[in-house]
Amino acid sequence: MYIKKIILAFAVIGLFVGGYYVYKVYNAFFIPNTSFNNTEAFVYIPSNTNFETVKTLLEPLLKDVSSFEAAAKRKGYTSNLKAGKFAIKRGMNNNELVNTLRSRNIPITLAFNNQETLEDLAGRVASQIEADSVSLVKAFNDEDFLKENGFDEQTKLAMYIPNSYEFFWNTTAAEFRDKMLKEYQRFWNDTRVSKANSLGLTPIEVTTLASVVHKETAKVDERPRVAGVYLNRLRDGMLLQADPTVIYALKLETGDFNQIIKRVLYKDLVLDSPYNTYKYGGLPPGPIAMPDITAIDAVLSPEKHDYFYFVANVENFGYHKFAKTLAQHNRNKEQYVRWINLQNIKR
């Protein structure tokens, strides 16, 4: 009888212990454990991190960090961390949290516009993914990569097509660069390459001219006309005489790409630089910025006309006045010079 009571007591204790254990496990895994009011919150987990860092990142989002840690250990997450951007939904329990952090790295939309230098691009990209600007610049300038893929110091800017792209936040510098190469190759499909060939230009030469067109006018609807002017000049062996190339040459000469130059002076036109299209014929040796897609397509599908000259239209700001003859152009130019002098723009 005494032995039966002992067995019964142990059984009751076992039930209590088991029940308590089940209760603890249930709480650790299946009770909601978020502490924010928004529908979701995002956490960015860096590469090569440790679980203590993950806990620190999650702490503001959780009611009970210790229960999350217990669940993470039981599910083997603490020794198998994943880098990336993760969406934490309001009301998630620890089981859902661990499953999300282990396998649901969500992509981001990365965007950049027409940067003038790869250093500018690196800064723009580094603000959107984990890779820093130093590692990005190093990847962009890798000599073996450039040579292997048909680029050089002057043309390397052409590989980056301004647009929006999908990446994972934890993308490395080399991965970003390599995907940009694939996007460049995808962009230059058979149709675009065929159009370039019909103009007697390579894709890089098209991008180079497009960078000038892009800098000449921000008006997308005017770009095919501007492109037509420059193509007419190239066809007839005339100098491009594009002010944006001179501005780029001045910035390159001084190493200061942040300076603002609103007016090209006559003394600037004698600068001995291959980018000075008042001094050297043909296209500059590479793009002076990253032209956007509308500028590239404007060169590939230019307006057919007999214009050889253009100057800013002070009666319709943002647009230009076009001329077929130098005499007509000089009349248009006089009006512009009078206006810019009245504005007291010296540089």
Results as ranks from 00 to 15, higher is better:
38 N>L: 13
73 K>F: 11
72 A>H: 04
188 W>T: 10
344 N>S: 14
17 V>K: 01
77 Y>R: 00
33 N>V: 02
35 S>K: 10
104 R>N: 15
256 D>I: 03
216 E>C: 03
154 Q>I: 00
326 L>A: 14
247 I>E: 00
270 V>H: 09
193 V>F: 07
53 T>K: 10
96 E>P: 06
133 S>N: 12
330 N>L: 14
148 E>D: 11
334 E>P: 01
340 I>F: 02
19 G>R: 01
30 F>C: 02
16 F>H: 05
339 W>A: 12
165 Y>R: 02
159 M>E: 15
291 P>S: 09
138 K>L: 08
213 V>Y: 00
231 L>A: 04
197 N>F: 03
19 G>E: 08
220 V>G: 03
331 R>S: 13
251 K>W: 03
120 D>W: 15
220 V>L: 10
42 F>E: 12
311 V>I: 11
72 A>C: 06
192 R>S: 05
206 V>Y: 01
127 S>E: 15
258 N>R: 12
6 I>G: 07
217 T>A: 05
90 R>F: 02
276 N>Q: 02
211 S>G: 02
212 V>A: 09
211 S>H: 03
319 Y>H: 14
214 H>L: 08
186 R>N: 15
253 E>T: 01
270 V>F: 06
103 S>C: 03
40 E>H: 13
4 K>S: 06
268 D>K: 04
22 V>N: 07
175 E>P: 01
194 S>H: 06
161 I>F: 05
48 N>V: 01
51 F>Q: 00
281 G>N: 10
315 E>Y: 11
207 T>P: 02
323 A>T: 10
338 R>H: 13
115 Q>G: 09
100 T>A: 13
313 N>V: 12
167 F>A: 05
12 V>H: 04
58 L>S: 06
200 G>R: 09
41 A>D: 12
205 E>R: 03
218 A>I: 05
100 T>Y: 07
10 F>K: 05
80 N>A: 15
229 V>R: 11
75 K>Q: 14
82 K>N: 13
104 R>S: 13
32 P>K: 09
80 N>G: 06
308 F>S: 09
192 R>C: 08
